[in-house]
Design a protein around this nucleic acid. Structure first.
Lengths: 313, 313
DNA sequence: AGAGGTTACGGGCAGCGTAAGGATC
DNA sequence: GATCCTTACGCTGCCCGTAACCTCT
């Protein structure tokens, strides 16, 4: 009589077409997967997978079983969400986060997760959104907060938060007198997110359509590095001011042109829709909640002065 | 994450309202059940059962879980029947059999089961039908071949075979000359199935409506004993002649009145419809097949002489 | 006192990870 | 040779069964 672990293992081998892949997905070793599948085939008296040199493909019986395995995992996920105490959910959830989120509400999110789901371990990986997208669709992470949404049948998206972009510079960077025009800005290097990312591409496009000579654009995958370089007066950066609240308050940085013709950075919570995603949707909802809380604190209701409110809290 | 074994255990505890009962149903010990339920409750962080002094009752969460457990077992049974090789099914099936069947086709059935399901062990219990009925509804056996059908929502019935009853006597028993009337028969003791059984009751009723003085009726729960007593000339027995084919052929017994106003013994295959009944339906179908084969051999197509055919086979 | 459930403890075995062994490109 | 799956082996740790304990009728 097969147990759920064997079926789960089989599901992932079938899904990924690879024993090795399944072993990584299940946080175990490849021989363990091999032996579980072998045991499953022996128990059922049926060959489930045709081991090809490069990929494992399902046999006819295997396709039948895959359907059942999926139903089992779905049923387990539903059961856990319905009957289990949230605090009892355990496991490792691999979370990919765009760095901007790290600088806004990630730590609050982590605290909340640990408070509500004490037995869930978060494996956090910080990277730029395109990379996160790739590892998410390949099931190497389960959940991601990134510039989205991701159009993929297996991924569901939920809006998290939006941050406007702005040109930011150190006060010691001399931009001359008078209104700061786009043309004036492009005289100095521009520092922003790396080439593959949406802000970089949008910025390049903006400057291109403006008919301006293409400025030097430095891309860095580390937001902290961008801030550091900007503080050092190396150039003007295009980042959301929300991540440099402290520097702005201290006067170490200033917003030199807020009315930027660039779309806001819109962050999305993306989760792979696997059949065994029981705690994931709860974690995703929590992320939406935390993002909303954070937004409310940053953009308080107009009755209150921003500084006064931030003291009050 | 709970495994199927825990859920199955929980299901039976809930179903039977007893840890001990579940332990017997699952062929394990009572502490094992206790520990599994405790682990399940800990994993889910929820109390599932309220342990009363006499019975265990479900909590609200427990009722929720019971539904899921049932769905899991059903799904597993369906999966096994669809994808598993029949020969791979394993387990212990507790079979209750009325003794008449033992004297007809049970041994053939056992052979067939072992041939088709080599990994299934049959626990066979021979008893009279009313007793079998009781242990079946109490889930102490899984399958029964008995005088049925059983009207119970949790039991499904399939017709197996019908055997006419007849008055049987030893040739040495003197019944006088001329046609054997009911009245003449009741002069000697009648030996048949025990008081609680359908043939006994029907016979009693028959004799009662005939307005005859109630004869002495000996009931024996052992068909072999009835035969023995009949051979010894203690009385006339009311049994299906099918079980004494050898004695009839040898002339040790004779049918003294075949046209009996008693309904045939109609045997039924009864199986408890539990959610985890994967091999049971296959075993039930096999029983129907074997009974049918047996019937064909006993009542061959009219073209063949009975004796000739039985030699040919 | 007896039935039913829990807890404690020792032993067996399943399943894991490490490591070596094919097979296929 | 590189990659992937399988097999072998030693070991840990879980889970079972025995037995003693607890509680309630």
């Amino acid at each position: 009589m097969p147990d759920l672990r064997s079926l789960e293992t089989f599901f992932w081998v079938a899904q990924l077409g690879s024993f090795r892949g399944a072993s990584e997905r299940l946080h175990t070793t490849q021989p363990a997967v091999s032996v579980r599948i072998a045991a499953l085939e022996k128990e059922l008296g049926v060959r489930l997978l045709e081991r090809g040199p490069r990929v494992a493909t399902l046999t006819a019986k295997g396709r039948l079983l895959l359907d059942y395995a999926e139903r089992f995992l779905r049923l387990r996920a539903e059961m856990m969400s319905v009957v289990a105490e949230p605090g009892a959910m355990s496991g490792v959830v691999r979370l990919g986060v765009a760095e901007t989120i790290v600088h806004t509400w990630l730590s609050r999110y982590i605290e909340r997760v640990h408070a509500i789901f004490p037995k869930i371990t978060l494996d956090i990986e910080v990277d730029v959104s395109p990379n996160l997208r790739n590892v998410l669709v390949e099931h190497q992470i389960d959940l991601a907060f990134l510039l989205g949404p991701i159009s993929d049948p297996n991924i569901s998206n939920h809006d998290l938060c939006r941050y406007p972009l702005a040109f930011v510079a150190s006060p010691k960077l001399d931009l001359g007198r008078g209104p700061v025009t786009l043309e004036r800005l492009t005289a100095v290097p521009i520092i922003t997110y790396p080439k593959t990312t949406r802000p970089y591409i949008a910025l390049r496009e903006l400057l291109g359509t403006a008919g301006l000579p293409t400025p030097r654009i430095y891309g860095s995958s580390s937001l902290s590095t961008i801030v550091r370089m900007t503080l050092d007066g190396i150039g003007i950066s295009v980042i959301p001011p929300v991540v440099i609240a402290a520097e702005l308050a201290r006067g170490d940085l200033r917003i030199v042109k807020p009315e930027l013709q660039l779309a806001d950075l819109a962050f999305t919570c993306c989760l792979a829709t696997t059949p065994d995603s029981s705690p994931l949707s709860a974690l995703a909802k929590l992320a939406c909640d935390v993002a909303e809380e954070d937004r409310l604190e940053r953009e308080p209701i107009p009755l209150f002065d921003k500084r006064a409110r931030s003291k009050a809290i």
